[in-house]
Simulated assay, not measured.
Amino acid sequence: MFSLRVKFHVLAFSSLTVFGHAAFAGDLGFGGTDWQVGGVVFVAPKYEGAKDYEVRGAPFIAPAGLGETSRVQFRGPDDLRFRAIEFNGFEAGPLVGWRFDRDQSDAARLRGLGDVDGGLVAGGYAAYRAGPITPFVSYHHQLTGDDTGALIRFGAETKAPFGWGSVTATAGATYADDDYMDAYFSVTQAQSASSKAHLAAYDADAGIKDVFLGLTSDVPLSDVWTLKLSGRYSRLLGDAADSPIVESENQFFGGLGLSYRFSLGQ
Results as ranks from 00 to 15, higher is better:
P244S: 06
G254H: 01
E68H: 14
D177M: 10
F136I: 04
A64C: 06
G257I: 14
A173P: 00
T17A: 15
G149E: 02
D79R: 11
K209D: 02
L256M: 14
G231L: 08
F212K: 04
L229V: 13
G39C: 14
A23H: 15
A126I: 09
S194K: 15
A127H: 04
Q142V: 12
G29I: 10
V246N: 05
Y180T: 05
R235V: 00
A204E: 08
G29N: 07
K196G: 08
D203Y: 13
L229H: 11
G257W: 11
A12S: 15
G131Q: 14
E247W: 02
G172R: 05
I208P: 01
F82H: 12
K228H: 15
S138N: 14
Q191M: 03
Q189H: 15
L237I: 08
D218A: 13
V137M: 09
E48W: 12
G118I: 12
A197V: 07
F253A: 03
S195F: 03
D210H: 00
A58H: 12
D106A: 15
Y233T: 07
P220Y: 01
V6D: 07
A193C: 00
F42R: 03
R81T: 05
A12T: 13
V116E: 09
R109P: 07
T148I: 12
S248A: 13
W98F: 11
E86C: 07
Q104G: 09
I245K: 00
R71F: 01
Q189I: 14
K159D: 08
G38T: 02
P77S: 08
M181S: 04
K7T: 10
F253W: 14
Q73I: 15
T33N: 05
G123S: 03
A107I: 04
D78Y: 06
R232T: 11
L151G: 05
L143F: 12
S195L: 06
D179M: 08
A122V: 12
Y184M: 07
A150Q: 14
L95P: 03
S14I: 14
F87A: 09
Q142K: 13
Y47C: 02
S248I: 01
I133M: 07
Y128L: 13
F30T: 13
R71M: 04
F154Q: 01
R153T: 09
A84P: 07
D34L: 14
S248T: 03
H21A: 09
L143D: 01
A176V: 10
F90E: 07
E68R: 15
T144W: 13
Q251P: 05
V121G: 01
D103T: 11
D239I: 05
V55F: 14
L237W: 09
D52P: 01
D27C: 04
Y53N: 02
G38W: 02
F100I: 06
F252M: 10
G172M: 05
R83E: 09
T148V: 15
A201D: 01
D27H: 13
H198V: 00
P45M: 08
F60S: 00
G112Q: 06
D146E: 04
F60G: 01
F87G: 00
K209H: 07
